[in-house]
Design a protein around this nucleic acid. Structure first.
Lengths: 198, 198
DNA sequence: GACATAAATTATCTTTTGTTAAGCTGCTAA
DNA sequence: TTAGCAGCTTAACAAAAGATAATTTATGTC
């Protein structure tokens, strides 16, 4: 079976020409983490600076608003990176909660440890750039959808581009990520399937 | 007068301990670019991979939607980086237009040239990380505002956090960046100033 | 299978936003 | 000074979304 390490070794080779045999110093510092459904990976107020590659399962990244409601920022599945961005980028306790929606398996590294490794092994640096650029690209794409599309258009796009996700995740989290209420998403679905304008 | 180079040299020292005297190889490849009001910096379909630091003025980053309408993604002013993200990250012709809203002065470098410099001068690498993280942080913050706040709340926050920007930029671009129409923004302003609930 | 619980839908009403078009205002250029 | 234009506001109506609550439909557990 193909593991996260296989995938990441291939990535390192493609990005930096590093042979799998030379990735020891990096993978020696990674940990496999298993989470069961509904288990929190990062809690609110936590200071850990974790970076992880999702091998299996889906992680929901959300925040508790002032009024107590939850708002889902991201839903991340297999083959995606997740990072505690409040602690890593903003250097503050995490306002976000990272929670498994399904049984999850992660390959994890502490960002501070990664930085130490990069000091002595700068050849891995392209991996960090790749990771940052990937996150930035995805984040900008979502931002773009908020300024160019209506909630219904965003939902339609999600259906075509990430159908698996929509089917594995409760609608209420999808709605929140689209910036609307679950009630409103339900009405969008009704409009779509009655008026038949696919 | 303090220049962009002063600012960036200070940044390089803070990030990587590089003395201003040792920044020659980097700044030798930068160009000062002046734009007049309404001049395009990057056009739709362009393939240039430009990265720039804004010394003076405001740049609007927008896209032409299928229906011909414009949607403003970003408004960037003094002290901010701008980058042609479609060409640099997505390696595709830019779908976005970067246009000066005021007379603009930029310190520009081609991203491909920067990459070459980084190969021979890896000591500048922290600058790239800083730039990527900064962009990611800002992008995630905007994304967060779309899933946690109403248009009115987003506008109020913009007023408190970027008052200068709101006052220097036509409302229609502000509205677009907030994901609403200019008419709707006008109504929000009316609600705010009549009902007086600041 | 029956029960308890969570999620999704539906209904009702209020609020907000979109759309279109008509004024109003301030700026610029002839 | 005036004519033209772009930006902002206002109005009127339609469409969509929010809030709340009731109902139906899964889902999971004993």
């Amino acid at each position: 079976m193909r593991t996260s390490i296989d995938t990441l070794q291939e990535l390192l080779f493609d990005l930096a020409g590093i042979m799998p045999a030379d990735t020891g110093p990096l993978f020696a510092m990674t940990t496999v983490v298993s989470l069961e459904t509904n288990e929190a990976y990062i809690r609110e107020g936590e200071n850990s600076r974790r970076l992880a590659f999702i091998e299996q399962g889906i992680i929901r990244v959300y925040i508790i608003k002032e009024n107590g409601d939850e708002a889902t920022l991201l839903l991340r599945g297999e083959g995606k990176f997740i990072a505690s961005h409040d602690t890593i980028i903003n250097r503050q306790p995490s306002r976000f909660i990272y929670r498994a929606l399904e049984p999850v398996k992660l390959l994890q590294i502490d960002y501070d440890v990664l930085e130490e490794i990069l000091k002595t092994h700068p050849e891995y640096e392209p991996l960090r750039n790749f990771f940052l650029m990937k996150m930035l690209a995805e984040s900008l794409k979502m931002l773009e959808s908020f300024v160019t599309q209506s909630p219904e258009e965003r939902y339609r796009e999600l259906l075509t581009e990430r159908f698996d996700l929509v089917n594995r995740v409760p609608d209420k989290y999808i709605a929140s990520m689209l910036g609307i209420t679950p009630v409103s998403l339900s009405r969008i679905r009704k409009r779509m399937y009655t008026k038949g304008k696919q």
